[in-house]
Write a protein that binds this DNA or RNA. Structure first.
Length: 202
DNA sequence: TAGGCGATGACCT
DNA sequence: GGTCATCGCCTAC
């Protein structure tokens, strides 16, 4: 577990958990990450990188880059490439609490409750003003979109099955800050096969 | 060139 | 809590 070797699947999990509580700065707004999902790259059927294509190429590159993709034709989803290059692992940022640029986020989201401003991958990207223009942005040195430092105190973390994925949906690689109101509700993918004996918590 | 598919969001009951 | 609507992109042929 303390084996944080990049090449191990555990490394992805460790990095995913490590993103919780960190701040993600977007365009004119920033959120404190409260919910993430880990994707194991080439070893994970649910990952876009499972099949190497031009779209997923970015994930095979250096870590700490931003991978943005469009879902259902209208939603943008933001991922943090965690690397290493050969594994193409990434972490989907699912939800966050707006901590800066509140007015900007509100304007973009059109009058929803503050806790829902960045609830859900698509909403979070919208609140931060993220789009395909930010694809490949280096989150450590980027001027606009960037990642803040880790919190001094690690937040309490809960884990569970991933949301919305149609494959490997029973892998408990979804992590969120326990009790945080901005965390999106769990919903299993309609296409996900029923996992025997895999009860959904909460 | 055509078809399939999606890591969703919003709305309705 | 459950169901439906949506659009564009990606992959395969």
């Amino acid at each position: 577990m303390t084996n944080v070797h990049d090449a191990s699947p555990d490394g992805v999990v460790v990095r995913a958990r490590g993103l919780l509580g960190r701040t993600l700065h977007g365009h004119g707004a920033a959120v404190r990450i409260t919910e993430v999902e880990a994707y194991g790259g080439i070893e994970d059927p649910a990952s876009h990188a499972f099949t190497r294509t031009p779209r997923s190429e970015i994930m095979y590159g250096p870590p700490w880059r931003l991978y943005v993709y469009r879902s259902y034709g209208m939603h943008w989803c933001a991922n943090v490439v965690t690397g290493p290059s050969e594994i193409a692992a990434a972490v989907l940022v699912r939800a966050g609490e707006v901590v800066d640029g509140l007015e900007t986020a509100r304007a973009r989201r059109g009058g929803v409750a503050d806790v829902a401003l960045a609830r859900g991958p698509g909403n979070l990207a919208r609140a931060l003003g993220l789009s395909v223009d930010d694809l490949g942005t280096d989150l450590l040195t980027g001027d606009g979109v960037r990642l803040g430092p880790a919190p001094e105190v690690s937040p309490p973390i809960s884990e569970g099955p991933r949301v919305g994925v149609s494959k490997a949906a029973d892998v408990p690689w979804r992590f969120w800050i326990a009790g945080d109101p901005t965390v999106s509700a769990y919903r299993r993918s309609p296409r996900a096969a029923t996992a025997p004996g895999q009860d959904v918590e909460r």
